[in-house]
Nucleic acid binder design. Sequence first.
DNA 1: GAATCCTATCTTGTATACAAGATTGTGCCA
DNA 2: TGGCACAATCTTGTATACAAGATAGGATTC
Lengths: 240, 240
Amino acid sequence: MKFISLFYIMGGRTIPNRKLVYSMTSKKEIMAYLKQEILSLELKPGAMISETALSERFQLSRTPIRDVLKQLSLEQYVDIYPKKGNLVSFIDLESVEQIIYLRNVLEKEIMKSLAGNIPLKGLHELRDNLAQQQKCIEQAEGAEVFLQLDDQFHRTMFGLAGREFLWGVLQQFNVHYIRYRKLHMLKDEKLAAIRQEHQQLLDYIVQGDTAGIDELLHHHLRADIDSKNLQEHFATYIKK
Amino acid sequence: MKFISLFYIMGGRTIPNRKLVYSMTSKKEIMAYLKQEILSLELKPGAMISETALSERFQLSRTPIRDVLKQLSLEQYVDIYPKKGNLVSFIDLESVEQIIYLRNVLEKEIMKSLAGNIPLKGLHELRDNLAQQQKCIEQAEGAEVFLQLDDQFHRTMFGLAGREFLWGVLQQFNVHYIRYRKLHMLKDEKLAAIRQEHQQLLDYIVQGDTAGIDELLHHHLRADIDSKNLQEHFATYIKK
DNA sequence: GAATCCTATCTTGTATACAAGATTGTGCCA
DNA sequence: TGGCACAATCTTGTATACAAGATAGGATTC
């Protein structure tokens, strides 16, 4: 039997350390491109994405395009209806609610684990971030920028607690949540309230006040997604 | 412009209610088959899965086989090394630890939400399950059966709290965890301890004793995965 | 004998032709 | 006018040939 040593080497873990790449670059580029278009709502929920159209647009055969679409469908960016077509997925409010809940539950526990023993470097990073949030609000830089800072704030927390992996898990179910957030378009006074809450949480963490954290995050668990507003204004984007 | 009405109908949500099927049956069957083989460790971590071999075995062309492998790789059953081959993934202990943590955090919150107001029907179901667990231990039916009951127990909890969605999320990251559990092969006395704990938890829930739940589940958050034992006996299965 | 190049042959990646389901619109008929 | 059958044409699904990277093993060289 030939090629036994390839097998052995792989089994012997020479290769597993190498970086996993699913293709050259173009497929990854197309993927990123489509994701961006879907998340930004340039590609509207329900819009059709045909394989042939994409293959002409990117000058590639249908085969690699199909690979991309398949992956997008597994990450819920796209719904595949066999022999009918591929549609940009509708925003699923159920998913949004569940992911917000998951996020809050995790965060509560993570913050409690950091309470009282947060590393100095991390503390600086978080305070820096809060300062930027403040600046963002004062100078009215818009919700987009604020949300990015917000994400970074939470992600840092996950990292400090050694739970970056779980942040990654959350990201994989974010399609619906991100688009929901974009449509929601928070008002300025709400941004200020969020920043204030972040500040309070960080204070509790520094003081090691786990009870305070519990108290403050408790009402978050009943994620009150503003579905009525969305149902009215963006009915065609929402999954029924 | 033609075919505008297909688009409209889809956008008009006639079709989204239909069940999503990625293919006829054969692809799904192959998928399930491979998953089972990988989870049961018949296909050992590091083993090579060639497209041509599968296509001969299942009498299908490489194209649908590739679809299956692609999906398996996204669910971490398989690692694809471009132009080299597809390997059954090695067990990633880091994933195992993170998933156990996630599971415990979620469960703690879910049980607390059920405390004091668990529906009667659900209570019966859980008690039934505990009785079966007891029977399983007494008659030494083996860890396999017990673990299945264990899963069912927790899943029921998720369902009662309206969090079946999140149970699904957990399942998607289970490849490493399930295989880890299989290798671990719990001893009988440990099974009894687990059952005892379940019983205690259910009692707390009925009594509405959230503090008790907190207390009992607290130490679970420091998931002590028994990696030393595994590293010794199954080194070739573990991701380095 | 050791290192290096080269070729055979394995692997997956891509392009393309054809199969087959789904939808539309037309033409027939009542 | 309404309803039905049917054909045209869109879609994705599958098979297959070929391209190209990766490895192994042997011939050549020193």
